[in-house]
Amino acid sequence: MTGIIIRNLSDQLVDLVRDRILAGTVEQDRAIRQDALAAELGVSKIPLREALTRLEQEGLLRSRANHGYFVRELTIDEAEEVYALRLRLEPDVAAMAAARATDAEREAATRTLARLDAVTNAHGDGVGAFNRAFHLALLRPSRQPITTTMLERLHVLGERYVRKHLEPLGRDQRANDEHARLLDRWLARDAAAVHDAMYAHIEQTVLDLRRQFQPDARSA
């Protein structure tokens, strides 16, 4: 029974710290203060350190000997790799899911997009998380659990890039429009149209990110 409690605590800590990283509330250039974070969360350092190790395995943190854990910096190379993998997998899986989705799954996808639109229009916190939830709602009905799990991990790695992508004025409305068109094709079970819309949506994001990273590269 004790092992189950410890495992659940570790899982909860992974979720809590991951959410902070993805929300941008943990600074990239400073080591995570494990003592302060453990005290804030009301836990000991042992399960927290386990959670940080798991987040390093997920690719969100990096460890430096004698310096602790740091949030991994955003780079165009990482963005290119994440989005290239999504382009290879996500359009086909979404098209398959459109054909297999139940009525309940179709209603869930519609509700998820409505929540994403509301948060985006309000410029509220959690846009990246709701964006991830919407995409996964279009993928899970494919009944391809291994591929969907891989894509979920890619979405986690890409969530901070979603936040960066939405920084320029007008991007949020364009994203809303692209999502709406994508959902319409998905609900119509038009597999070819879903594939093309998803591919174009992901491709446009990485093209925008390349332009956004260019000034950073010049200043560096």
Rank of each mutant, 00 (worst) to 15 (best):
E56L: 01
D172W: 12
A200R: 12
R18A: 07
A114Q: 11
A129P: 09
Q28P: 05
N176P: 00
D103E: 15
M150W: 09
A188K: 06
S142K: 08
I4N: 11
E58R: 14
R189G: 05
T75M: 02
E56C: 08
A188D: 02
D117Y: 12
A118W: 08
T148L: 08
R160P: 10
V93I: 15
E50T: 12
R33S: 08
R88T: 03
G170Y: 06
L48M: 06
H135Y: 14
E80N: 07
L154I: 02
D216V: 15
L52G: 03
Q57R: 14
Y69A: 04
A180F: 09
Q28T: 15
T147N: 06
A129W: 13
G158H: 00
I6Y: 13
L55N: 00
E58Y: 12
A188E: 11
D177N: 09
R189N: 09
L209S: 06
F70V: 06
Q144Y: 07
A39T: 09
T53R: 12
S63K: 10
G42M: 04
G68F: 04
L74Q: 12
L48E: 03
A38R: 00
Y69V: 03
A36F: 08
D117V: 14
D117T: 13
A122Q: 15
Y69S: 01
V162D: 11
Q173Y: 07
A114D: 07
L61G: 00
A84P: 08
M1G: 14
N121S: 13
R143C: 08
L166T: 02
L85Y: 03
L87P: 02
A217Q: 12
R49W: 12
E203Q: 14
D19E: 15
R49I: 05
P141G: 12
A118S: 11
A51M: 00
Y83D: 01
M198P: 04
L157F: 02
A217V: 14
V14T: 05
R218T: 13
R49E: 11
G68M: 06
D77G: 04
G42C: 04
E105T: 14
M198I: 05
N121Q: 15
R211L: 15
R153Q: 15
R185D: 11
R171G: 04
H155N: 15
H155C: 10
P91V: 01
L166D: 08
T148E: 11
A97R: 03
T102W: 04
S10I: 09
L209G: 03
G124H: 10
A98M: 05
E50W: 10
L85M: 14
T149M: 11
L138F: 09
A133V: 07
A39R: 10
G124L: 13
R54F: 07
L13E: 00
L61K: 01
E105I: 13
L60M: 07
G158T: 01
R86S: 02
D117P: 03
R153S: 15
T53N: 15
N131D: 15
M198D: 07
L157G: 04
Q204G: 15
R189K: 13
A36D: 07
A193F: 06
Q144V: 08
T25M: 04
R54W: 07
R86Q: 12
E90A: 08
P141M: 13
